[in-house]
Design a protein around this nucleic acid. Sequence first.
DNA 1: AACCCGGGCGACCATCGGACGCTGGTGCC
DNA 2: GGCACCAGCGTCCGATGGTCGCCCGGGTT
Lengths: 240, 240
Amino acid sequence: GADNGLMFPDAIATIGPLNLNSKEPVLLEQSHTHFGAPALLAIPEPSSDNEKRKLGRKKQKRRHSREPGEDGDDRPREHPFIVTEPGELARGKKNGLDYLFDLYEQCARFLGEVQQISKERGEKCPTKVTNQVFRHAKLKGASYINKPKMRHYVHCYALHCLDLEQSNHLRKLYKDRGENVGAWRQACYYPLVEMARQNGWDIEGVFNRNEKLRIWYVPTKLRQLCHIEKSKDSDSCSYE
Amino acid sequence: GADNGLMFPDAIATIGPLNLNSKEPVLLEQSHTHFGAPALLAIPEPSSDNEKRKLGRKKQKRRHSREPGEDGDDRPREHPFIVTEPGELARGKKNGLDYLFDLYEQCARFLGEVQQISKERGEKCPTKVTNQVFRHAKLKGASYINKPKMRHYVHCYALHCLDLEQSNHLRKLYKDRGENVGAWRQACYYPLVEMARQNGWDIEGVFNRNEKLRIWYVPTKLRQLCHIEKSKDSDSCSYE
DNA sequence: AACCCGGGCGACCATCGGACGCTGGTGCC
DNA sequence: GGCACCAGCGTCCGATGGTCGCCCGGGTT
């Protein structure tokens, strides 16, 4: 470099590495269904790499149950969710669904903070709730937020965002029937598949068009269900 | 399940795991510059995990040079690029820049195919040129396309897309000066930084707004340059 | 032929998105 | 108190985005 005042090239050349991220549920109104279960046991999906499947699942040792001589400051796990109707707060050592959905709103806020920070630093700016966001939430003290939980109930939150009426309906129904959270969670899929159908099976688009949902990945299982139903729709064969 | 015709729940419950795939460059017109290089040697960026840096770079053994007794069908590497002006085809064992840019268009087509396939299969649909796309290109016989190469020149292609005039200008200039590809590649950064400045330093947005660029990740170095220049712009301190 | 320059791209790494299933909290008897 | 159920989330895994630098092609002497 010389006195030409154009040091930019050197600047570029020297930038180094940076780091910084069962029952029998009811479908409510819809009866447009010919859901044949059997086919689903053996997943029909083809794949580019059909070999080498399932060779994982070894080394599953998963150290749980604290070894002697370790820090014993593990947080107790969160209380389980129960099916509550809108506005109802859970009794006993349980959490209600309003609280569950609030967790999603909290994540949205944490994402906003991460975006702000990464913009200030000139780093890649996430558009979705990523590992980085979960890490940030934990750092900010929201230790009750974690990835497996949030991913587990995304589609329930999706229904809540896309059709509050129907979501509330379903909650009341499952609560009154005394169903557990797992059953309610399963039931949340159907209305979403129906919405996908009405939108040309573009579930990704359904998520992206909603302000609050845009930041959440479409759950694999939901995408697969849509694919299966779509195939049935366009399928001229009938096994009746 | 019973005879209610609503087998959907079971269907959902049984979906199993699926798998699927130099010199002193000139800034042309722009002279808005006070690029101080020194600061760039020690990267100032803070980071959430500042420790453990650089402890990598071990285990660098990188088996090259074929061991005896292996398939010897390795393709010869592509001819190096040279700086050519638009329309000029490279002489000798060299490739020209028109060819380089055509590679990007080919990748766009391969991405289109991957998107088509993943939509048919109900899998996640990539919006960018991902590893999967490079794999697909290779499978389709385009073995001359590879990730490190394409990522290396993305910003050059970006300039070509965003300001053909200026890109052509720069090519001619560097060709006439007898500069090598590396020097030309470095020079491509400046006009892009200038464009970012004119767009509120939103380089991501600059890429996303262009039909052809949208599918390419913004190179880290370009993002960093924009960040550094932005800091200088808003910096009231001057070290002269 | 011998040399050296420079850049192509194989291979590596941290981290990601995604999922499983162990562990233990919880309500019921 | 004891037990069975079920769901929270620690932990793992294949694959991704991103990069370095080895190796060798190619032009020059």
